[in-house]
Design a protein around this nucleic acid. Sequence first.
DNA 1: ATGGTAGTGCAACTA
Length: 265
Amino acid sequence: MKLATWNVNSLKVRLPQVLEWLGTSGVDVLCLQELKMPHDKFPLAEFEAIGYQACWAGQKTYNGVAVISRDPARSVQINMPGFPDDHQRLIAATLPSPQGDIRVVSVYCPNGQAVDSDKYTYKLAWFAALREWLLTELAAHPRMVVLGDYNVAPADADVHDPAKWEGDILVSPSEREAFEALLSLGFTDAFRHFPQEEKMFSWWDYRRMAFRRNAGLRIDHALVSSALLPFCTACEIDKGPRRNEQPSDHTPVIVTLDLPVEKEA
DNA sequence: ATGGTAGTGCAACTA
């Protein structure tokens, strides 16, 4: 079972790339962020035409998240109860697997803009709420994967030029602590669970030829709960879509769970 | 220190 996350930066613009990538990558579940479209403009028919279902939370211009899956999602929840938010940044869904249900969450964590801004305060509050919500969600659904754009590069190894970025938004100590606080619930950053090449990133600024220079950050992550970790066999970044014409500034991260069908006694 | 690009939606905001 392959699950992926991709901040598409407008699903309207990126839809052909997403449909093509679903066909070539063979992922079973795809979490999307930054749909940037009103809820009623979501292209459900296009996904259904290639054998996928979808649940989503859209809004005009900004944010927006979705879970695309071969199987229909159940118990869909949008945003976090107890944390009123104008932004559509989280959607959770229960999906079947050969070994029982899995709880999948697509998150678009706030960017924060700058460390001294109101948006930074909102970002840290959002992460604190996410931790509290995941604590209870994990108790109800131990088999959980939280995929998305966290807008945090967890360590200097996830930054192309750590000295230049030191203390900046996306790498500041408080943001990294907020990310680590999620891991402390029992999640593992799947990418770091396996040996990886150096300088592997998931986002490159559109400006200053950042992708050509590999001047990127790793801010898109798949967090796997301890109950599922034994079945996690791979996590990779697919740089292919970032090379497309008119690409998103993010590229997909794929996590593989090896869940063989349990034989009957 | 600033600006560089992309998307939405048509000015200015977000990233």
